[in-house]
Simulated assay, not measured.
Amino acid sequence: MLTGSFTFVVMTYNLWGDAHLEQREPAIRDLFSIRPPDLLATQELRPRSRAVVDEALPGHARVHDDFPGWGTQSNLWWRQELFDLVEYGTRDVGILDTDARLFWVRLRPRAGDARPLVFSTAHLTWPGHAQERADRRNLRTGQAEQVVTALDEIAGDEACLFTVDINDIGQPLWVLGNGGFLDSFSALGRTSPVTHPVAPLPFVTDRGTRLSPLGSPSKAIDWIFSRGPIATRASEVVEFFSAGNAPSDHKPVAATFTLPSTTA
């Protein structure tokens, strides 16, 4: 490890909105109590699940803001003994869901002289959105392009982490790669395991989706991307059940990163 560098664990997690939340609450609480990350990004957040995360991560802070998306879409948590908040914001990147944005914070590590970083998240539009079904055009490619443009402006040459439920397996990923971002598995010469859907889900009895009788295909759609002066050390799709229940229909992704010192 470089002298003055700083290593920490990041997790991204789609919390599945309000679906079966009463049954899943204990598992959500157990996950974050047993495996608390230093940085956490969430998608499909709701006020109730946000309160559960707050309870399970008492040593963490998050963004408190009147914009409703911080409680109904995404939020970002950081371990207070490790990071200080510098600033935060949102950016409209064309995601077609109420209050959906690119959510970001700029954090300064408290230890040594490690470089600051931008930590961000988004949940790109579901392929079953009415507009996409009507015109059959992939909405996520343009959204990924807007994410890259926004993070170019927000982060510049700083270390940048972008976490996402990308809802796709093709072009939006290529856009991010061509924008200088590398996912935490590719950075280690690996491919990502499946992140969605989780099985079994004992409280779910329906087959398929509300748009088709076909079950959702197994796929990797949850990612942690990095760019700039930051090194990927490890990456994992987390398998977690508590009392037979999964916390979500997605699996969390966790990765370890190192920030070099400002003098490295």
Rank of each mutant, 00 (worst) to 15 (best):
158 E>T: 02
140 R>M: 14
35 R>K: 15
175 V>K: 06
243 A>L: 14
143 Q>T: 00
6 F>C: 03
47 P>F: 15
176 L>W: 07
92 D>V: 03
75 N>L: 12
217 P>E: 03
157 D>F: 10
55 E>S: 09
174 W>Y: 12
116 P>C: 09
241 F>R: 11
238 V>Q: 04
229 P>C: 06
217 P>N: 06
241 F>Q: 00
258 T>E: 15
257 F>C: 01
263 T>P: 06
26 P>V: 13
25 E>M: 13
145 E>I: 09
145 E>L: 11
50 R>E: 07
244 G>M: 05
207 R>D: 11
108 R>E: 11
186 S>N: 08
185 F>M: 05
30 D>P: 02
149 T>Y: 10
231 A>Q: 14
226 S>L: 14
226 S>Y: 08
262 T>E: 13
108 R>P: 01
201 L>F: 13
209 T>R: 06
179 G>V: 01
141 T>M: 14
114 A>M: 04
57 L>P: 00
179 G>H: 02
72 T>S: 11
174 W>I: 15
82 L>H: 02
2 L>T: 06
228 G>Y: 08
246 A>L: 08
86 V>R: 09
16 W>Q: 05
251 K>T: 00
204 V>W: 07
104 W>E: 03
214 L>D: 09
27 A>V: 04
199 A>N: 05
221 I>K: 00
117 L>F: 14
21 L>N: 01
180 G>K: 05
261 S>V: 04
118 V>H: 02
109 P>W: 15
263 T>Q: 15
155 A>M: 06
105 V>N: 01
123 H>R: 07
48 R>D: 02
101 R>L: 14
242 S>D: 01
65 D>T: 06
204 V>M: 13
49 S>K: 00
110 R>P: 03
234 A>E: 05
92 D>E: 07
103 F>H: 03
33 S>C: 11
167 N>H: 05
67 F>I: 07
240 F>E: 01
135 D>N: 14
91 R>P: 03
